[in-house]
Design a protein around this nucleic acid. Structure first.
Lengths: 143, 143
DNA sequence: AATCAATTAAGAATGATTCCTAATTATATT
DNA sequence: AATATAATTAGGAATCATTCTTAATTGATT
């Protein structure tokens, strides 16, 4: 996991560079995305911010998450059931291992992934821009 | 690609085994899913069936696609933008290469994928049930 | 401190999917 | 072949996540 403080500063820097205002609500969203390990969804971010901003609108969370996504500072994890969760700590393509019971998400190290991407580019002639690799299974805690 | 006729028969057999009625609408959905190469979405299936069944309800397409999915005879491909497309020809986890411009989908052969699944199981202790592997890029036709 | 464009809150609108209900129909049985 | 019945259908209503709208507010610049 990247250092949460560094990630926070890095995202704030990107926002400034692109002339986006640093509102308290926006910074609260950034903080949660930069620091949380659990890949929160929009609803979760909304809940967490409620404590500090009781009038916070859900639409504001959506707006800011989308902004950060468009700046490449947040990775959206779309799941088969249609739900979305977000990773602001490692905002680039990387594999996940997801427990279908407790919904835990782990980031495994897969050395062979780079080779595989090259293999795909070679076989299909595509210029590969990104990928999505998720393994679904049962974690040790859930037997 | 598996033989479309065999896939059609195989799906029909599964439906019979599970005591589902073979309505004309249902069989039309099965036929399209078993034979189409282009990974159609629900809307596309609906359009294609309109010609033969002008009174066909969109809900009926959804119902039947979901039924086939629950029987393991159709693979649902959920995309980052929230859209879904379906594969009734190869209804098991397999990688895709998707052109972000023309939306073309190719099924590459990746020999190393089995090894990678074993690697993940070994590293995380998960019992891996399925996976999802999509590469996004630009195909040769779209330069 | 004043200005102004960006941002916000709150609720309305949207769009994909699912649900509901009465009418229809595939299948098994006679 | 006719009947019974449980599954399925059409069509529209309901749902739910997400996006849009509008007027009010606010961060950043001068």
């Amino acid at each position: 996991m990247a250092d949460p403080d560094e990630r926070f500063d890095s995202i704030v820097k990107k926002l400034k560079e692109n002339n986006h205002k640093l509102t308290p609500q926006r910074l609260a969203v950034v903080k949660i995305l930069a620091t949380s390990k659990g890949h929160p969804n929009v609803e979760k971010i909304y809940e967490l911010i409620q404590k500090d901003f009781p009038t916070m609108s859900l639409a504001t969370v959506y707006r800011n998450v989308m902004l950060l996504k468009s700046l490449g500072e947040v990775l959206e994890l779309g799941f088969p059931d249609g739900s979305n969760r977000y990773d602001g700590n490692k905002p680039y393509s990387h594999p996940h291992v997801i427990c279908v019971k407790c919904k835990k998400i782990i980031d495994p190290d897969l050395d062979t992934l780079k080779d595989m991407t090259a293999e795909v580019a070679d076989e299909t002639g595509f210029k590969i821009l990104m990928h999505r690799l998720d393994f679904f299974g049962i974690c040790q805690d859930c037997i």
